[in-house]
Design a protein around this nucleic acid. Sequence first.
DNA 1: CACTTTTTTAGGAATGGTTATTAATCGAAA
DNA 2: TTTCGATTAATAACCATTCCTAAAAAAGTG
Lengths: 143, 143
Amino acid sequence: MIGSPERDVRERFRRSGYTLTSQRRAVLDALEDFKGHPSAEEVYLAVKKKNPKVALGTVYQALSVLEEIGLIEAKRWSETPVRYDLNTEPHYDIRCTRCGEVAEIPGLKFDDFAARIRENTTYKVTNTSLVIEGHCPACQTEG
Amino acid sequence: MIGSPERDVRERFRRSGYTLTSQRRAVLDALEDFKGHPSAEEVYLAVKKKNPKVALGTVYQALSVLEEIGLIEAKRWSETPVRYDLNTEPHYDIRCTRCGEVAEIPGLKFDDFAARIRENTTYKVTNTSLVIEGHCPACQTEG
DNA sequence: CACTTTTTTAGGAATGGTTATTAATCGAAA
DNA sequence: TTTCGATTAATAACCATTCCTAAAAAAGTG
């Protein structure tokens, strides 16, 4: 759900029984400005620049709502903080375990591998959470 | 490193500059008794049955050492707590996002997929951390 | 064996991202 | 405008994990 038209955003809120408040709009805008995978704290700081009265807890709750209605996806690696991604299409992200940077793996199709997983497990795969870890180019040079 | 002979364990400690203390031995034993993927808290409770004086912090530190020297692997999903696995061979685990249960996907080769990841990223993949999420059979029936 | 040095431990306090609480405020519907 | 549920700001609580410190254990060293 990257760069959704305004009407899609409003529709998604309406159908889910939530209202598109100014705070939630600001969180979504901040997320779009970031491009990358900001943490809740980073989103909070960006939102606060335009509206200094917003509370950190409000940002957390807004992110939770945005995730619930499918406008964003929460990347939950264990090393805190959680990072948020506007790209809710199934895709592979790789995360540097040294510096925390997150990047997409562009040329890798998700579907065929997901199919092979499904063949070998009785679990119902919620396939948007596949995560890979490694070291980014910058961190590889540091030994 | 599942079910390593005692001499391998000692050797691994020695080479890494650590001593195999009774506390670390107890943590490793508890991990072997578990079979599954216990959390630090669960390991702590198991260890405490035989040695009530052991501290939770000691268990955390022992797990950290065991991970560092490669005897165990820490599965770091974001939803706490972290879970530990004696199987340090590259393999796929799937985790139920509803109940937290962790299971292996036995019939899925790791190498070929890891190779495809490497072809499409400049990251150096630390491939033991690949994690898949889904719903286990029991939780699927609950809607 | 002593003696010294280093490592490890137990106990408890601190950390920090995240959640929960609560009273005030907003906003849509009647 | 009144009403009532939804949302917010502010702040306290949570909790897995880490940090701190003095004591204990283990590892050198002569």
